[in-house]
Design a protein around this nucleic acid. Structure first.
Lengths: 227, 227
DNA sequence: TAATATAATTAGGATACCCTAACTATTGAA
DNA sequence: TTCAATAGTTAGGGTATCCTAATTATATTA
């Protein structure tokens, strides 16, 4: 029996591991992520280990087993499908969809997910540019990389963001930067790595390195020389 | 804090009271409805009473307070809006929608409900003729009454059903009786209160009193004399 | 490296929900 | 009206989630 909480623990472990692949997922990380206390996490981890969804030890942290990963990716799939649906079909803004999808992702009906996925046109990526796992839990490939790794002169398309906070998303909206927009890197200030960008409206904007690290882009030409 | 279970208890009390307005809603009724045992219900009732959502005593049974009724009607509203949406927009069959709506009704987002309600065209009734409460918890008026209360010669329109079981809905389909169909009561057998009905295809069918009690109709003439 | 800060863990509790078994009150039928 | 069936209630548990406080282990840093 997978409860709503259990799904959230597995998803949290997946997302934390995905976010920083070099770092072990610690009980404290999970606790902060889910806004519970570490002992609560320890207790749940013991259960997840017993169910063979997770392995855990102090040094490697929590790791999903293949079964656990399958469940987590299914929730991620549902989440991203719902986000796309809310954005494309129900006219929610980029910054609104996450919270509602957090609830909808736990609705258990494969048939419903199939219908929704059909309607949005079976995309490989959600409106944030995050890949939608397929039913088998496989992720589509992409050449997305942070905008901060561009070289001068690079022309690229915005495919997503790494940070989903409302503050950041609102910042992008104010800057008139949205999904699938084209950007041109006109200048890179070597002092602080800030970028001067040309945007779709022929505006020229200055962007900090911090922000550029969170924007995921793909070069428009195959071997443009970006890292 | 209203949990998903709590919402279900309030909805159950509302629906049981609505279904038979003369009968007190007993703990056993609620237990059967929610598929739990009576002591579980008693325990929850004590909590709901303390929260002032419900009053309870052995003789009057469980009754919703105005606060409790408001919550219950909001859940009913969500449920019926989702059912309509699943049926009209996502092409689910009537027998499929209930189970999925049971889950979706607990998703908490007024904005989402507003969008969904807009898309289905802000109807007052769901496809089965059940009234959709407005945001203030007020039910749209209708003169729906059981077909079984018709007098001989009555001409009426089918507006809904009181029973939503698959068996019953399939029976109606077989009998070629659907929403908005016109019926004429040609004869009433006083022995068992069964009815002889004229239907849209000029068929004549016999219907038991049991079935007629579950079909909700409205007379086509204002003062036709039906009870 | 010793002192200190941080993380992991254990112990002990609380609440929400759900149960069975036993007891009491009510009702309904002989 | 009395006895048997049914409904309501109480007592006592169980699991899932979550907590605080205290303890132990690990890391960091002066």
């Amino acid at each position: 029996m997978k409860t709503y909480r259990e799904e959230n623990y597995l998803k949290a472990i997946y997302q934390l591991a995905d976010h920083d692949k070099t770092k072990a997922v610690s009980p404290t990380d999970i606790a902060n992520w889910l806004e519970v206390k570490p002992p609560t996490v320890l207790e749940k981890l013991a259960i997840l280990v017993k169910k063979n969804y997770v392995t855990y030890n102090k040094f490697d942290g929590a790791k999903l087993t293949s079964t656990g990963k399958e469940i987590a990716l299914n929730i991620v799939r549902r989440h991203r499908i719902w986000e796309t649906y809310l954005y494309k079909q129900l006219n929610f803004s980029w910054s609104e969809v996450h919270e509602i999808a957090e609830q909808l992702e736990h609705v258990n009906s494969d048939k419903l997910m199939d219908r929704i996925y059909d309607i949005i046109g079976k995309p490989d990526f959600d409106p944030h540019g995050d890949p939608i796992p397929n039913k088998q839990g496989r992720l589509p490939k992409s050449d997305r990389r942070p905008l901060s790794k561009s070289i001068k002169g690079c022309k690229c398309v915005v495919l997503g963001v790494s940070e989903h906070s409302e503050v950041f998303l609102n910042y992008l909206t104010e800057m008139h930067i949205g999904l699938n927009d084209k950007l041109v890197v006109e200048q890179i200030n070597s002092y602080d790595d800030s970028l001067i960008l040309g945007t779709k409206n022929k505006e020229t904007i200055l962007m900090s390195s911090k922000a550029a690290q969170q924007i995921l882009v793909q070069c428009m030409k195959p071997n443009c020389g970006c890292k």
